[in-house]
Design a protein around this nucleic acid. Structure first.
Lengths: 231, 231
DNA sequence: AACCCAAAAATAATGTATGATCCAAACATT
DNA sequence: AATGTTTGGATCATACATTATTTTTGGGTT
């Protein structure tokens, strides 16, 4: 009854938690920065009672996606250029450290996996931004996922998700594309050569480049599109 | 972060939020690591209904003080040696970066303030651990609080609170005491000399030393005291 | 008797609903 | 401008429904 053959398969089998839904709506921009989050509205919107909404908001607050003032409710934390700069800076500190460690434990198989993903990325050649994002995430995931410092890896992941969401809104410039491919290759090379310093340097540059790219686009969008810091 | 200076008399006139109460009870150890957090119990304990409790737990979850599994409730995140190691490693990456920046903007007045706090710390000479913790926090706060990267500074703050809570449980060894004083002085010196590299190196060593100290004590406590990973 | 397992009961988390307060902001009146 | 009033929402307290987990219980089996 509920089993559809469905050629392409639907991607939303589980209704996901309210928390995830709101979060997704925030980072995807459906709920705009600084926008007021009224409990009653959200409850209606997601078809639940107010309780789960309140809980989701508290969690989001803990993760800093949402700002709350007593008796004045919640609003979406504005994800602006500064915010991006901040998390990029942190990423630029953490990722090289994680990468360094990976260099010490990487096996032939790991490198093969990286090459494989990289090959897919190149085959795709940025034609499907969504898919590209997935692959790119997976590429770095291979490197970070086995690290013993789960805290650091989680931090990376959380930042990554925010950035991915933002990036989705604009295309990747040609020069950035080239840089991404080049840096991935260099990274693989450095890992293969067991050169932790170089690997760390490459990933640091990679992160910074990505940050610059995003911020430039945001700035551009801000200058071009209509403005509404709002409320 | 939102703490009043309040000379020495810091009373708690306001009942504080449920969130803060639970949080305090967790980091002060009143609720022990890994302990189950039953909503009904907590509600009784703090004399509220279940609603605020649920929300507080969600927030704590977002901040990673509490772990939740669907339909199995919340428990206090076990703060073990690995956890400490993880956050120390992150701190060891972030703090030097924050410090570096401070070197570039520090004024005479800033240095004077650091010296003043440091003098108080030395006068106190670890006789009151609680007060010492306060002063030590304030010392580093001076350095980080004005940094533009609020995200990084908040991260530091959160980590700091966890560490402070753990440290409260055991005394500071003599060698560690000496190291703390020495490193603070070196740090001030480096800042005064506008030597960012040295300042960063000092703070990195400071963080790592603190981590080692804590972990050693934890290990000792684990080996000595009774065991109970539990439930 | 000791052991295993599955049905039943107890426990708790999670969700819904509703009413009562309280607070901040906007509005109205002096 | 200073003060009172209204109002939208957040916050809190209950009560209850639903669902998943844990514990208990009562055989049956070795």
């Amino acid at each position: 009854m509920d089993k559809q053959p469905a050629a392409t398969i639907d991607v939303e089998p589980v209704p996901a938690s309210i928390y995830e839904l709101i979060r997704e709506d925030i980072i995807s921009g459906k709920i705009g920065p600084n926008e007021r989050l009224k409990i009653a509205d959200l409850a209606k919107r997601y078809g639940t009672s107010t309780n789960p909404i309140r809980e989701a908001l508290q969690q989001l607050r803990g993760e800093d996606f949402v700002i709350m003032e007593p008796h004045r409710g919640a609003r979406v934390r504005p994800i602006d250029e500064n915010f991006v700069r901040d998390i990029i800076e942190i990423a630029a500190l953490i990722e090289p450290a994680l990468t360094r460690w990976f260099v010490g434990i990487a096996t032939e198989a790991d490198i093969a996996q990286l090459l494989e993903i990289q090959a897919e990325i190149e085959a795709l050649n940025f034609s499907d931004p969504n898919r590209h994002g997935q692959l790119d995430t997976r590429f770095h995931e291979v490197i970070y996922d086995r690290h013993y410092n789960r805290h650091a890896a989680d931090l990376w992941w959380r930042h990554r998700e925010v950035l991915r969401a933002i990036s989705r809104r604009f295309p990747t410039s040609l020069s950035r594309r080239a840089a991404v491919l080049r840096e991935h290759h260099e990274l693989i090379e450095a890992i293969r050569a067991q050169d932790a310093d170089r690997a760390a340097a490459v990933i640091a540059a990679h992160v910074e480049g990505s940050g610059r790219h995003i911020i430039e686009h945001m700035r551009l969008a801000r200058a071009t599109g209509a403005r509404k810091p709002l409320t």
